[in-house]
Every structure is written in structure tokens, then in C-alpha cells.
């Protein structure tokens, strides 16, 4: 196996240290999945904190959860699930080499992601007005379940904030993807970036799938 002949005819879009598109593709997917494993553990730390306090202060968490608007949470869940679907449109188009639909898919995903963040923005604003942001400004006038309610809101903001941060990053990356997508950079042979990004976006969706019941739905029947 001669290296020099391979290097001379190195195909476009194949990095110098890979031997084949196949190797490059498998490497980039494995890398992306390992990155997502890392993300699972990152959010996982928050979930462990949540589960610990939820098991200690069930009533306070339920009371805190009742301060959130279930309808807003449900609408945002729907919006985010749809954005995951539009991401699938972009990835499928990339597999076919249909550059127009890659762009449409990305634009739709940006749109739904933007709606989600817009709703979140107003939701945060309302929490601020109701003195539900933890810290010196926090006030609690609800049931007498004690101080751990503030911990619920600490977690609410940390978890949704981290999630929103991941969405902002995702939308930023998609904005940068529009131009190369339109110019036909991604072909059926080489669209690892689009597919890898798709994985990231779906992961962000999964985080929200857990956040919705954990934050918005607890104690709905009892409190």
C-alpha cells in the first residue's frame, strides 16, 4: 500500500490523514457520539442534583413547579419536537445532495428554535417580575413549604439556562451552515458535518424531553 500515490490523488473533502471516505465518516460519527456522551454526563450532573433534592424536598419542588405555566412548557415542547423533525429534513436532503432542501430544513429549524427561545425569554421575564429568580431578590409567598423552593428555582434556571445556551450555540452554527449549504458544499458522499450537527440538535431536544416533566409537571395532581 503506497502512501505517495494515495496522497497524490487525495479526493476533495477527504482529510489528509484518512484513507477513505468510509474511515472519515465513521471517525466523525464516533467522535460526535462521544461528544454527546460527554454532554449526557454534563447535563447528568444537573439531573443528579435535581433527583437528590426532589427526593429530599418533594413538597417544595411540587409547589415551585406550580409557579410554572404548563401550557407554555407544552407549547415549547411541541415547537422543539417539530424543530427536530425539520432537522431531519435537512439531513435527509444532505444525503440526497439536495442543497435547496438542506437550506430550507436549516431555516425551518432556526425558525422553530428561535420561537422556543423567544417563548423562554418571556417566561424568564415573568419569573423575574414574580421575584422567583434565586438570590437576594427572591421572595416566596406561596404555601409554607420552606426555603428549598428557592433551590427548585436555582435548578430551573440552571437547567433551562444550560439548555437554552446549547440552543443558542446550535442556532449560531446553523446560521454559519447556510452559506456553504447553498453553495453545495455537502454532497451525498461527504455531508458528515450536517449529520453530526443533526445529532447535536436531537440531543438538545432529548434534554428538553426530560426537563419538561421534571420541571413543569411535578405535583400537578396533588398541589
Amino acid at each position: 500500500m503506497s502512501d505517495s500515490s494515495a496522497a497524490a490523488a487525495h479526493p476533495p473533502g477527504l482529510a489528509h490523514h484518512f484513507e477513505s471516505y468510509e474511515q472519515q465518516k465513521h471517525s466523525s460519527f464516533l467522535g460526535m457520539w462521544l461528544f454527546l456522551v460527554q454532554e449526557v454526563m454534563f447535563f447528568g450532573g444537573l439531573f443528579v442534583v435535581y433527583v437528590t433534592y426532589r427526593s429530599l424536598y418533594g413538597d417544595a419542588f411540587a409547589a415551585g413547579s406550580r409557579q410554572l405555566d404548563v401550557m407554555i412548557g407544552a407549547v415549547n415542547t411541541t415547537v422543539l419536537l417539530i424543530s427536530s423533525f425539520t432537522m431531519v429534513i435537512a439531513v435527509t436532503a444532505a444525503k440526497k445532495g439536495n442543497r435547496k432542501w438542506i437550506v430550507y430544513g436549516l431555516l425551518l429549524t432556526i425558525l422553530f428554535g428561535g420561537i422556543f427561545l423567544g417563548v423562554k425569554y418571556f417566561e424568564y421575564g415573568a419569573k423575574w417580575q414574580h421575584h422567583l429568580v434565586p438570590g437576594p431578590y427572591f421572595e416566596w409567598h406561596g404555601e409554607g413549604v420552606g426555603r428549598p423552593v428557592e433551590i427548585f428555582f436555582c435548578l430551573y434556571f440552571a437547567m433551562t439556562g444550560m439548555h437554552a445556551l446549547h440552543m443558542v450555540v446550535g442556532i449560531g452554527i446553523m446560521l454559519f451552515m447556510l452559506r456553504p449549504a447553498w453553495r453545495g458544499k455537502w454532497t451525498p458522499q461527504n455531508h458528515n458535518f450536517v449529520e453530526g450537527f443533526g445529532l447535536y440538535w436531537h440531543f438538545v431536544d432529548i434534554v428538553w424531553i426530560f426537563l419538561f416533566p421534571f420541571l413543569y409537571l411535578i405535583g400537578l395532581a396533588t398541589h
Binding site: 462521544l34 454527546l36 460527554q38 454532554e39 449526557v40 447528568g44
Partner: peptide, 9 residues
Amino acid sequence: AAVGGFFWL
């Protein structure tokens, strides 16, 4: 990899 992260968590 898909299962591993959740399992470890």
C-alpha cells in the same frame, strides 16, 4: 456509545 452515557449517568 448511545446507551453508555445514559447507563453511566
